[in-house]
Every structure is written in structure tokens, then in C-alpha cells.
Design a protein around this nucleic acid. Structure first.
Length: 506
RNA sequence: CGGGGAGUGGCGCAGCCUGGUAGCGCAUCUGUUUUGGGAACAGAGGGUCGCAGGUUCGAAUCCUGUCUCCCCGACCA
């Protein structure tokens, strides 16, 4: 069987990933280290993610704001752990002017800023400063904010969508009267991410709490959703943090309670980023490119007219326009269908393969024979081939197709999720007794291992971290829905208190 | 930042060792014939060889510096 990509997942997963991004026209290098140009199809997917996620955020009563890109350096100095965690990867603006010297533009030394400005790596500090002004009374709580923005972290090693120096994300920041309320918000955001991932992204995840050593700098507790990529590695696809009163102390976020006493707020932060697109690629992609879940596909159904530069073309186009109109009147996932009639003047067969690589969920080909018979030729991207290796083109009456189009998209969404869910479940092992043997070899990635442990801290924890590191393994999270521990700690032999997932990661 | 590889028309590459004024495939454009599993033929356009210095009569080629990308580490969403 001939595939649309030159590298298969089995041959070289990393190379395959890059080829999908190039061939699906999702993004490209920009010439600036670690920064990518997100092209229309890739950005369209991000816009879909934004639209659907934003609705969920608003449904929870969170309001959008926008805070500055530049954060005064001193803001970071207020919280030691936080600055420690980000200091090594911050982009800093120190001057505000250039000058021309011998035809070259150079930084003007006379234009040095009094205080350097950090390009935000995350906005806890600025938003904390704002909240300290906005919150005075218990009546102001909870304060629920979110922003859609770009952030910059000067990463050592970058990979498109998975780790770029600049990335797009949403960051929720909330302030609460007490720990219980803040924890509830932290877990609400986590559940929102879990449901979003399993729903629109069709990407099954495990929601759980990060061990102490994997916490966000300055957080009291960090939760994550972890997705299983097709090569068996984990991808942290979203995080939610309970920050205790740490950031409230640093920024002076206080409120007067009902009794007139002055109290510190308990804050949270939570975020998801363009990394999710990388997760979608590595969850659903196949050897023909991306398979885009219908809910986040910019175009769910692409109509490809088979034009021959002759008189029949008008009739074919006319038929296609009518079909597009009929389809746009249908609803799937409580939204009108997104239908593209692709009239670009290239050969229909090339057009088809381009849409296969981009992962349009349904490709409908319409040629003179279809027009004559009142039919359409339908390809569903999640089941591209028949058992005999031939393209599984289904020829059906136009009316029949318009009647089932919406449910077809919903089927594809469900099928993609089911396929990935099966893989996730099958890739978690609970009977492993020897990690070194299980993960033998640098390239051998066999999914995750769940073990019971005693949740040690300090040096005992550090020893385990180092032991895992030697095997290129990390602790992913303690699944919230795991069955209670009933044995001894995999590492220390003490009585176990919970179960934790271990694996290789992006 | 350490180790390895690479930057040559839009994309993928050859040329570099042994300096002499740039070539191939794909793509693009034009025309003709085609057309339902990625069309064929003919013709055309397009590159100061990542960038900056240096050596030389002459640099894609040699030297120095620098930027970017890929792989492996350390760091991380």
C-alpha cells in the first residue's frame, strides 16, 4: 500500500512527526530560534481549540482579560521559588532604542531601561499585582480571570508545537477566600481540561497530581493531564496549580473578611497551550498524515470537484455548490457543519491527497459521473483504506449523504477517541517488577508503568528521581481515579499510600 | 550549554577533498494531449551557494567568527 508520507511511524517516529507538520501544512520554521510560523491549517485548528475551550472557561464564570507582555524584573524577585524556576529561560528587554552605526543597527547604550523587562514566561506575577489592587473585600471573591496570550521561555531544545520558545496558550488565574475554594477551582480546571481533551481533541488522558519534584515553581500542588502518544511516550497536555498563599504573599493579595480581619487569598493558575496540537498529531496521525478530529477540524467536509476544463465543469461546480449549501444547513456537535468547496485550480487527485495529509475528516469527490447519477464519492479519513489496501471510497446518493453527514462526523470523532483510548489502556502496565528490563534500551518505549509508592519526600524522593532518570524515566502523575494502594512501595518497600504512573516523556 | 550532523532556486539534493564564475530531481509557468488511485510530452523562468570577515588574480569550495535547523544529553508546557 502506498502511503502519502515518505516516513512511517514505525520507521522513525520523530521524523514522521516533522513530516506530518510539513505535509499537512501546519507550521514551518521562522528563522528565529525555536519560534514557528503557524500556517492557516495549523492556526485554524488552534482557533477551533480556542473557541471551544473559551466557551468552557466562560461557562465556569471565568472572565477574560489581557495583561502586558512585559513584566518588570522586580516582580519576579518577590517569589524565590518562582524566579528560581524560570530565571534560566527568560528573555529580557534591556534597551528601548537602536542607532545606526556605519549602516548597521546597534543597541543604543544611552537607551538603557532603568529596570529590565522580562518577556512573560507566565503571568502569575503581573496578574497577582493586578489582583492585589482589585481585591479588597470578601465580596470581591472569588476573582476568576483568564487570558489568551503568547509566552516566551528560552528553551534549550525546541520541537514544533511540543516545545517552542514562543507559544500560544490560555492561562487562568484565580483568587479565593480559602484553601477549600481554591482547591475546588484547581480541580475544576483540571476536569475541564480532561473533558476537553477527551471530547474535542478525542485524546484520552490520565488526570492526576504531580509528585512534589514535578510541581510548578512556587506551587503547593500541581495537577496534570497526561496523554499517551503513539510511540508510548507521555505528553503533559495541561496543568492546574493550587498556589496556596505563596503568590498572594508575594504580591499582597489580601481581603477583609466578614469579621473585619485581613486575610491572604489562596490562588490558582491553570494552562493549556499549542502543545495540544502536537498531542493531537501524535495521538491521531497515521502514515498518511494528520487525522484531525472533526470538532477541531477547520473544515470538516471538503468537497473536491473533478474538473476537466470542459463544458461539464459548470454542472459539476453547480452540483457541488448545492451540496455544500445543503451540508452547511446541517448541525454536528451543536454547530453548523464547516464545509469547504475546494475550487483551487490544481488536479483533483493532488487536491485529494493534500486533504488526506491535512486530515480533513471527510473528503467528498464529485465528478461528472456522480452528477449524472445524483451521487457523491465519500472518503472518511479515519478509515482511508479497505482491507485490500485500496482507497475506501463510498459512492452514495447525494441525499443519503447529506442525511448522514452530521452523524458521520460524530462517528469519526468517537472512533478516533476509541482507537486512542484502547491504545492508552493497553499501554499502561501494572505488573512490572523490573523497570530497567521493561524499558531496556534507549529507544524502547513501551508505554507507562503504574506502581504503588509511599510518597516519600526530600532525599528519599530525590534518590528515586535519580534512579528513574538513569533509565530516562520520569514520574507522570498520581491518577485521581486509581484504585487505592494495597501493597508496599515499589521503591522503598514501605507501606504504599497511592499509585503513580512512570514513563518516558516529551 | 556539551557531543554529533547539516545549511547550495519553493522543496529534496550533488558539487567542496584536489579553488576557475553552479547542476540534478520534484515543484512553478506556458502550450498540447489527458483526466475518478498522486498524468505525459515539449518549452520557459527562477539561486551573488545561511551571514560576516579573511586568504587568493579568482572562493559554493580553503581559514576564522557567527546565526539557524536536525539528532543525543542537561533544562522544560
Amino acid at each position: 500500500m502506498k502511503h502519502a508520507l515518505s516516513v512511517t511511524r514505525a520507521q522513525n517516529f520523530a521524523e514522521w512527526y516533522q513530516e506530518v507538520i510539513a505535509e499537512a501544512d501546519l507550521a514551518e520554521e521562522s528563522g528565529v530560534r525555536g519560534c514557528m510560523v503557524i500556517k492557516p491549517w495549523g492556526y485554524g485548528i488552534w482557533e477551533r481549540i480556542q473557541t471551544l475551550m473559551d466557551a468552557q472557561i466562560k461557562l465556569a464564570g471565568v472572565e477574560n482579560c489581557y495583561f502586558p507582555l512585559f513584566i518588570p524584573l522586580s516582580y519576579f524577585e518577590k517569589e524565590a521559588d518562582h524566579v528560581e524556576g524560570f530565571a534560566k529561560e527568560m528573555a529580557v528587554v534591556t534597551h528601548h532604542r537602536l542607532k545606526s552605526v556605519n549602516g548597521k543597527l546597534v543597541v543604543d547604550p544611552d537607551a538603557k531601561l532603568e529596570e529590565p523587562l522580562v518577556v512573560r514566561p507566565t503571568s502569575e506575577t503581573v496578574i497577582g499585582a493586578a489582583m492585589s489592587r482589585w481585591i479588597q473585600s470578601w465580596r470581591d471573591l472569588p476573582m476568576l480571570t483568564n487570558q489568551w496570550a503568547n509566552v516566551v521561555r528560552w528553551e534549550m531544545r525546541t520541537r514544533m508545537f511540543l516545545r517552542t520558545s514562543e507559544f500560544l496558550w490560555q492561562e487562568g488565574h484565580t483568587a479565593h477566600a480559602d484553601k477549600a475554594d481554591a482547591m475546588a477551582e484547581t480541580l475544576r480546571a483540571l476536569e475541564m481540561y480532561r473533558a476537553f481533551s477527551e471530547g474535542p481533541l478525542a485524546m484520552p488522558v490520565v488526570a492526576g497530581e504531580k509528585p512534589e519534584n514535578e510541581r510548578f515553581p512556587g506551587a503547593d500542588a500541581t495537577y496534570s493531564i497526561e496523554a499517551m502518544m503513539q510511540d508510548g511516550k507521555a505528553l503533559q497536555a495541561g496543568t492546574s496549580h493550587y498556589l496556596g498563599t505563596t503568590f498572594a504573599e508575594a504580591a499582597g493579595i489580601r481581603y477583609q473578611d466578614r469579621d473585619g480581619g485581613l486575610q491572604l487569598c489562596h490562588t490558582t493558575s491553570w494552562g493549556t497551550s499549542t502543545r495540544m496540537i502536537g498531542g493531537v498529531i501524535m495521538t491521531h496521525g497515521d502514515d498518511d498524515g494528520l487525522r484531525c478530529p472533526p470538532q477541531i477540524a477547520p473544515h470538516q467536509i471538503v468537497i473536491v470537484p473533478m474538473l476537466r476544463d470542459n463544458d461539464e465543469d459548470l454542472a459539476v461546480l453547480d452540483y457541488c455548490r448545492t451540496l455544500a449549501g445543503e451540508l452547511r444547513g446541517q448541525m454536528a456537535f451543536a454547530e453548523p457543519l464547516r464545509v469547504l468547496l475546494d475550487t483551487k485550480a490544481i488536479k483533483a487527485s493532488n487536491k485529494r491527497w493534500n486533504w488526506v495529509k491535512k486530515g480533513a475528516p471527510v473528503i467528498v469527490e464529485v465528478g461528472p459521473r456522480d452528477v449524472a447519477g445524483g451521487n457523491v464519492s465519500v472518503l472518511r479519513r479515519d478509515r482511508l483504506y479497505n482491507a485490500d489496501g485500496k482507497l475506501a471510497t463510498a459512492i452514495m446518493a447525494r441525499d443519503d449523504f447529506t442525511g448522514i453527514a452530521a452523524s458521520l462526523l460524530e462517528d469519526i470523532q468517537t472512533a478516533l477517541h476509541a482507537e486512542a483510548k484502547t491504545r492508552l489502556v493497553a499501554s499502561i502496565r501494572r505488573d512490572v517488577t523490573d523497570l530497567a528490563a521493561h524499558y531496556a534500551g534507549d529507544d524502547k518505549v513501551v508505554g507507562w508503568v503504574e506502581v504503588q509508592w509511599a510518597r516519600p519526600t526530600g532525599e528519599a524522593l530525590e534518590a528515586i528521581v535519580q534512579q528513574l532518570k538513569a533509565l530516562k524515566l520520569t514520574m507522570r502523575n498520581v491518577p485521581l481515579d486509581a484504585v487505592p494502594a494495597d501493597g508496599v512501595c515499589f521503591f522503598t518497600g514501605e507501606t504504599a499510600v497511592e499509585r503513580i504512573l512512570i514513563g518516558r516523556t516529551y
